[in-house]
Amino acid sequence: MKKYTVTDKKDTRSGFGAGIAELGRSNPKVIALCADLVASLKLDTFIKENPDRFIQVGIAEANMIGVSAGLALSGYIPYATTFANFGSGRVYDQIRQSVAYSGTNVKICVSHAGLTLGEDGATHQILEDLAMMRAMPEMTVINPCDYNQTKAATIAIADYDGPVYLRFGRPVMPIFTADDQKFEIGKAWTVNEGKDVSIFATGHLVWEAILAGEMLEKEGIDAEIINIHTIKPLDNEAILKSASKTRCVVTAEEHQLNGGLGDAVCQLLSRNIPTPVEMVGVNNSFGESGVPAQLMEKYGLNAKSIVESVKKVIGRK
């Protein structure tokens, strides 16, 4: 098992803040919009350095999406920011008509996704957003795994001409990817090569997959771990190649089992090389208030659950 050193601990939303700050200096077309959550989205530096390229829309997310579409069709690159809950389900129709169907170059960048939002509870813990955005034609869906990768993704999507849903989170998490990485949309990253099982993980669950890999190694199981930071377009080639080798798969995501990464992987595998799959995710339920680590434990979104799923799926080979 390849060793990963935790260089620091930070929240992925701060990676977004650092990325957009850098874009503010390098790309004059980038405009940031926010619906009254500037501090939560870590926009302070961008706003301080580019006051004329920040638009406060107030608590009016539907309007923010429309304004973004208008800016984009005028040649700017708007980054529309809010919590994941308010940047997906609340504005689905606005994204559908004014952004995706209209082909406007809007970047929807959302924080506080999933259970790790914590104490605010289920009203804010969106666990269905990847499914919604994945179902939408023309939409690119990205869920990076740590601070460095979120920063790199934030910068990379400016060079891609098309709508993007970029999802990140609130909790402080280990940083284990390179700070000078080049982020390639749709290109999976092999975290560890192995032969016994493929673990496809996204977002905060990638670090849990690494911890799971270390635990499995002690039991003689050699896990291949792949970071699927881009849920759509899916890196079909990397997934099929890995599954062909290991012949069993575990998926892991901070999302409902319905419609997310696991479903995307199952669809791909069942149409090409039917393979046993176990899925780690939230099973058809809402979240609740609590400390993030407690919630991840209660809802089975951690290394321990991944290890259990690996053992189960290996038994189904």
């Binding site: 309007n63 923010m64 429309g66 208008g70 800016l71 069709l73 005028s74 008509q97 004014s98 209209s102």
Partner: peptide, 25 residues
């Protein structure tokens, strides 16, 4: 045609974005 419309209520927001862009430029 610059943007799709039909699902009602969205055009004024888009127009606001375009008007804002004109101000910026």
């Amino acid at each position: 045609i610059r943007v799709a419309s039909g699902s009602l209520g969205q055009g004024l927001s888009v127009g606001c974005g375009a008007a804002y862009a004109k101000k910026l430029r």
